[in-house]
């Protein structure tokens, strides 16, 4: 089963989505950590009132986390679940 085209497609659909996205959000998070560390002046720039770049970027991390979770779940529900269920029911029924 692992070598079948059907399963390879499912694996590809998972990996080609999850791996790049993982690299992207880890990089984005590290960028934020590095900016906090080494770009203090930039992070301290006040945007409005006492709200500075650091706070806005921090809140942006929250926002992107929520968005990625939603995006992945949508991808999983439409692209992964149907394929996985088809394989599972065939293996457990037929084999």
């Amino acid at each position: 089963m692992q070598a079948s085209a059907e399963f390879r497609e499912l694996r590809h659909a998972h990996r080609s989505f999850a791996f790049p996205l993982t690299i992207a959000f880890v990089a984005w998070y590290l960028l934020y950590v590095l900016l906090s560390n080494y770009a203090g002046d930039f992070m301290g720039t006040k945007l409005f009132g006492n709200i500075n770049v650091a706070l806005v970027l921090g809140l942006a991390q929250f926002l992107t986390t929520f968005l990625i979770a939603w995006w992945y779940s949508r991808h999983a529900a439409t692209k992964l679940d149907p394929k996985a269920e088809a394989i599972k029911s065939r293996m457990e029924g037929g084999a």
């Binding site: 906090s36 560390n37 203090g40 992070m43 301290g44 006040k46 409005f48 009132g49 006492n50 709200i51 500075n52 650091a54 706070l55």
Partner: peptide
Amino acid sequence: FNVSDLLGSAADNSGKHSAFLEPGLKYG
């Protein structure tokens, strides 16, 4: 419900002023 005021008071009361709202107080 003014977050900016809250942050401003925190910065002043801490005695560290705007540095309190920026990265670096503990780790910088």
